[in-house]
Structure formats: structure tokens, C-alpha cells
Design a binder for these strands. Structure first.
Lengths: 347, 347
DNA sequence: GACGTTTCTGTAACCGTTTCCGGGAGAATC
DNA sequence: GATTCTCCCGGAAACGGTTACAGAAACGTC
């Protein structure tokens, strides 16, 4: 607001107008050069570029946004919980977007004050071009409504099965679970328990499908008593595992649907004096930082978190270009990581 | 751009002008109401509010930013490494800013292309009101230059000692280290080793100070051979610990300057068949997720990460208000968390 | 040499707010 | 009853770009 005082080093931000007059052209031309439009004579382009460099000019993204209709911002919502997990996805997203000169703006999902007013689109209207919703709390209906508004977004790790037509990326939960189960089967386990996460979430459902499929194709009869529900936390995982281990005929292996619960299972086993992995095999899911660190190091299914983040970004970018997405629902391959928590059952 | 087609549910974004005409006032008045200016007659205010509600109007933040000069965005830079650690700080920051209706925009520190052009201020010029720099790579000089430009920012976890006048928040590293060391001393340890992180970083320097102070005030002579340098990673921590344990006269306790290295130390000890904590006590720093999970669970110094994030946000907010900060350098108290990795030394 | 193209550039409208400035209507003062 | 204050409110100028439109210059073509 004050006079643009170009102190020793503190160059005041210059505008397109100043660049224009320095280069002896109009602001329209400067704008064209800045945006790489082809219809500018080489000589003019050079002159403008020189002026830009001299002044250390950078285009004001706010003004560009208002005028051009695109803000260059992508909103990302994520749950507060499981920070490490989502941080890894977020890193992928931020990186991919940054490469396209777009930025991530965070909108943590917390106080869900009156939905009516603060429907998540309001949060972003006018300030973001689109959004990436991680493990969104919104119902399918709400998401469909958002979509109907024409607001572009993609979901990562949908909580419930999404409607056709809503772009989503997730890990190949079913096949990952299948691989994990097959690993246990091939080691010789037959009494294999599963600790589900929140049972309604897609991830749980899919993993359970994979688990059952693997058992079935190995001709193993699944014991319903060996499938218990939990909530993805260490504590509850421990409780669930404890209950399983206290069964008259306990399982020889436990497949926990995430690493946290697997770590809980490890604890429960240790509390009962079981030797690991000889007396109990444990498999997790995620390949979190912790998986490699606990003892015994956890055999687990690796989710390509950063890739999921990047993929979400690239889907969104395509959406923004108004390209139609051939594949709306992307599943990224998982990979079994065998460590020390699994071994053949004792005879 | 097309005709504002108010489909069934899809209300096209309405502008202040439409609200104004609906309420029968001028846009200036609407703006005043929206911003809670006092000079509006109650009746007028009500009429405007009603129109706003009817149209589901939300003010276009981009336009507001361009006109009002404030964007409502705060840039946050953070290193890619140690995602979990910074995610926890970031969560605090995002939450605190959100309460003030400001948003975080992420600018990951990656490709540090030509510094000259992309000095970090350019990244943000015009798009953010200020920034929070976590563990910034920039030198003191660069930060001072940024400051001279009048761009408000605060540093979290400075890498090197900062100049007076640059707002920064960090944990009480020295006193935390002192507490950790005193804990070991009070257990009876006398040969206590320290594994430093990157030696130049302030955190290491401060923690070393605390470590030495505790030893000194207990009248224990510090053995220089027991202070080794590392780099905050598990692997290097393990190597450093291994070297310490292979000393002719090994320490009975190791204070690692972060949890990662402490976990490395645990590994090194286990590899040598040492019983933990009987034959070796280990203390970490951070209280990361992992600390509670490893066996034995790590005694460590808890950093109030979320609080650090919130504090940084509130300092920045005050800076933005042009309030002068009385305390530019804030240190948040740490707390010793005693778990299972420490015990009295064997006689 | 007149005319149609192509290539390049400038003029000006517009994006949706905020805010300065000025003015009309009452209320208060004399 | 004239004058001065308040209190509210509207007009219009920014904010810093993008872009539709039109016009000038340079070039071919017949």
C-alpha cells in the first residue's frame, strides 16, 4: 500500500504493467508471453522475458485465479487419525501436483459444524479447482450431490463402496489379502484367523473377500469363530487377538487387516508367553513404518501409498482438463512383504 | 461462463451482486454486512443476511484476496523425510489456522531448482500471507533476507541457531535432554553414552548441552569416547550404538538423540545378545509412534509436536496482525516418558 | 496495384471483492 | 429554522491479471 520502496534488496513486487512498460509493450502481450501463447514474435518475447527477469517478476496467482477462473489449488481433506498413513499418501499427492505447478491446500476434517452451511463444497468453492478426499466421511449420496454440482474430485480409500462414476483410487485390497492368506496357507497353516477392521469400510470388506477366496481355493473350511471384528487400533487388535488365542482351539495364524491390529496381536501373543513366530504367525496389512520395527518384524501387505497419492492427483488433473477418464476406479497393486512374524505351524 | 443454470440442486455460485439486488441494496452494503462492519442498519443487515442464506452465497475468497490484499493462506514448507514427525506438527498448525478461517498450503521442499529465481518467497508471493517453515534448509542469511522483505514467517525446529528477531518455536531440547540424563543417573548409571543426531543442527547442540549439564551437575566426568555422532536414522543409530557397545569399556546406558537412533541402539544391543534393559538402558527423544511399540518400549522425551504446530500458527497470526511479538523464540516444554527400556545398571 | 491472408499487438471489458469518498436523511444544537 | 453532526448507504475506483475483439503491418496472389 505504501510507496513501493525498493530498499537495498527488498524489491517490491512488480506488476505486469511495469514489466509491460519496461519492455515497451502492452500488458496483453506480457500476459501472452507469460502463458506461453504462440502468437508472439520472437523478438517481442525476448524483450518481455528480459524485463521479467530484470524485475524479478512473478505472476500474482491470486489475480490470475480471479481472472482466469482457475486457482491452481487443490483441496485435500483427510481424517486426523492415522496421520502417518495419510501423510505418506499426501506426500505423493503434493509432489505430483507440484510438478504441474499446482498446490495442495489442507482442509482437515474436524469439527463438522452444521452440515447445511459447511457442506464441503462451500469450503472450497472459488478457492480450489478440485479436491482429493481421503477416507471421506461423506456418504455416497453427499458425494454424488457434490459431483452433480460439477465440482471435480477424486476419492482415496473410500469408506463405503462408491457409486459408479465417482473416481476413486485404492489399494488392491482383495488381492493383497489373498496373497497374505496364501502365504500362510503355503506355510502349512489351516486354522487361520482374521481380525477385521471396521467391518463396514470397503477396505475391510474387500480384504475379507480376498481372505475367504484364498481359503476356499485351498479347500480350507473357514471357521466363522475365527473371523472377528475390530477397529484398526492397536488396543482393540490386542483384545481381538486375545479372544482368539483363548479359544479352545486357537488359530495357528492370525491375519490382521492392518498393521496396528497385527501389532496388537503380537502383544496378545507375547502376553500369553507364545513364542513368535513358532507358535503363532501374524500377518498385517499396510506396511507401516512400525511393521519393520516391531519384534518380530511383521510380515505384511505393502500398500503403495505414495503412488496412490500420485495417482489420485493425476486423475484429478485429467478431470480438470475435462478429459474423460476411461478408468474411474483405480486399484493399485499391493505386494506381500515377508518378514519374521510368519513361519510354519508347529506339527 | 455459461448461463447460470440453477438446476435441481446445482445452484450455480452466486455473486455479491446478485445478493445485493435480491436484498435491494448495493454491493458495498453487502460487503459490509459480510465483513461484520458496524455501520449497517439492523434492518438492512437482516435483509442482506436473508438474501445470502437464500442464495447459498459464499464469498469468493480469491476475489477477496485480490481486493483485500490478504489471501487467507499460509504456506508451510517441510522436508520430505520424517513424514510422521512433521505430520504431527502440521496437524496442529492446520487445526489452529483453520480455527481462524485460514488454510494451509503445502509447498514441499524438493527440487531446489535455481535458487535465484525460486527463492522460497517467490513460491509464495501473492498467494500466501505468511509461512511456517519446518526444519528449513535455508541459511540464516537467507532467512534474514526473507525477513527484510517484510514477509512474515515463523520457523519450527530451526536447523541452525537463528538470528535474533526471527520467530521460531522448538521443543525445550536442553531441558529434555537434561531430564533424560538425570533419569539415567538416578538409576545409577555412570557410563552414559550419547548418540548425537546431525551434529550441526540446533536440536543436537541443545540436547548435547543438556546432556553435559546433567552429567556435570551430578559430578560425573563425561568420557569423550562415549559421545558419538550419527544422523537421526535407524541404520546409522545402530552402527553408532554398535561401535559404542564394542568399546573395551562399553557404556551401561545410551541416550540417543531421537527415537530412530534409539531403536537402532536396541537392535545393536539385541544383535550382541544383551538383555534389555538389564544389561543396557536406552533412552530416546521425540516419543514417536514407534517408541511405544518397540520392545522393550522406549523410555523417551516427549516433544509436544501438535502444540508446537499450534504455537507456530499463533505466532504467525500475531505477526500478520502486525502485533509485535514479545517472545520471538518460544520453547515448549518436553516431558520424560519412562517405559521399559531403562533400568538400573547391573552391579 | 488492389485485395485477401496471416501474423502480431494493443484496447478494453471483465473476474468478484473491498474500500475510499461523498451525499442524503434525520437528529441534535443553537 | 438554519447549521452541524451522525448514521447509513451507493458510486466507482482499485486489486493484477486474462482474453475477446479489432486493427496495423507484412506478405502473397492475381
Amino acid at each position: 500500500m505504501a510507496q513501493p520502496e525498493p530498499a537495498q534488496g527488498a524489491k517490491a513486487r512488480s506488476t505486469i504493467r511495469e514489466v509491460a512498460s519496461a519492455a515497451g509493450v502492452s500488458i496483453a502481450t506480457v500476459s501472452r508471453v507469460l502463458n506461453g501463447r504462440p502468437d508472439v514474435a520472437p523478438a517481442t518475447r525476448d524483450a518481455v522475458m528480459r524485463a521479467v527477469r530484470d524485475q524479478g517478476f512473478t505472476t500474482n496467482r491470486t489475480a490470475r485465479a480471479l481472472s482466469g477462473g482457475r486457482t491452481g489449488f487443490v483441496g485435500v481433506t483427510l481424517p486426523l487419525i492415522e496421520a502417518a498413513y495419510f501423510a505418506r499418501i499426501l506426500a505423493g499427492t503434493a509432489e505430483a501436483l507440484h510438478e504441474q505447478d499446482m498446490r495442495v491446500v489442507l482442509t482437515p476434517t474436524l469439527h463438522l459444524h452444521d452440515r447445511a452451511v459447511t457442506l464441503l463444497d462451500r469450503l472450497m468453492h472459488g478457492t480450489t479447482d478440485g479436491a482429493i478426499l481421503m477416507l471421506p466421511e461423506e456418504t455416497n449420496e453427499e458425494l454424488k450431490a457434490l459431483r452433480r454440482l460439477g465440482y471435480p474430485f477424486v476419492v482415496v480409500d473410500p469408506r463405503e463402496p462408491l457409486d459408479e462414476g465417482i473416481p476413486a483410487v485404492s489399494a488392491a485390497n482383495a488381492s493383497g489379502a489373498r496373497a497374505a492368506t496364501q502365504h500362510l496357507l503355503s506355510l502349512g497353516h489351516r486354522r487361520i484367523a482374521a481380525i477385521l477392521g471396521v467391518a463396514e469400510w470397503t477396505a475391510s470388506v474387500e480384504r475379507l473377500l480376498g481372505f475367504r477366496a484364498a481359503l476356499a481355493s485351498a479347500g480350507v473350511l473357514a471357521d466363522p469363530a475365527l473371523v472377528v471384528e475390530s477397529d484398526f487400533s492397536i488396543e482393540e487388535g490386542e483384545k481381538a487377538a486375545a479372544a482368539l488365542l483363548d479359544l479352545p482351539e486357537p488359530p495357528t495364524a492370525i491375519f490382521a487387516f492392518n498393521d496396528n491390529m497385527a501389532i496388537g496381536a503380537l502383544r496378545a501373543a507375547r502376553a500369553r508367553g507364545l513364542r513368535l513366530p513358532e507358535e503363532l504367525s501374524v500377518v498385517g496389512f499396510d506396511d507401516s513404518e512400525e511393521a519393520a520395527i516391531v519384534t518380530p518384524a511383521l510380515t505384511t501387505v505393502r500398500q503403495p501409498l505414495a503412488e496412490m497419492g500420485r495417482m489420485a492427483a493425476s486423475l484429478l488433473l485429467r478431470l480438470l482438463e475435462n478429459q474423460t477418464l476411461e478408468a474411474l476406479n483405480v486399484e493399485l497393486a499391493t505386494r506381500l512383504v515377508v518378514r519374521d512374524s510368519t513361519a510354519p505351524p508347529r506339527p
